[in-house]
Amino acid sequence: MTGASGAGKSSLLSMIYLARKPSAGRIRLFERDVTTLSRPETAMMRRKIGVVFQDFRLLDHLTALENVALPLKISGQRDEKVRRHVAELLAWVGLSEHLDSYPPTLSGGQKQRVAIARAVVGRPSLLIADEPTGNVDDRMAVRLLYLFEELNKLGTTIVIATHNESLVARFDHPVVRLVDGGVRVDRPRKGRA
């Protein structure tokens, strides 16, 4: 999803990950009209959605490892295997040196990668990433997008909001453009994904 700054990308995404309700219209997710969900149903649906927030929203008093393990803790997974799984994931995004670092001591790009690890750790059915590569160099950006592609192949639907047109051009996926309050969808040339 692309669009100029202030076009409404974050706003639209926040409605999809159930942080806000649309003032008009309806949103259907997983065969449900999300405006009719009860609080417990909303919680259960959110567990199927992983979110990389534009401002990361890491908990500063928890280590990188604890931050990433949080979705698993909340959904009741608390065995020893979790630590290994989480550590591997952090190693994959290049943070094996920082398992026990606290977010305030991490760089913007490092925080972003912790946020991405937290969003994908629970194997969500839907992954929403708001500007997930804004703070990393191009090499890491491409690497992260490959991670997303891998997840996509495993069956996860992925929505990424970005300004980075060159990144959009580099991959061959449907593009939603927010322009002047309207939506334009560009299908991929090869009809992939």
Binding site: A19, R39, A43, R46, R47, L70, P71, I74, R118
Partner: peptide, 16 residues
């Protein structure tokens, strides 16, 4: 409030 909002967004129930 911000921590609780985040917990909710990653699927925490009120009882959690």
């Amino acid at each position: 409030g911000h921590v609780i909002e985040l917990l909710h967004l990653i699927g925490a129930r009120d009882s959690y």
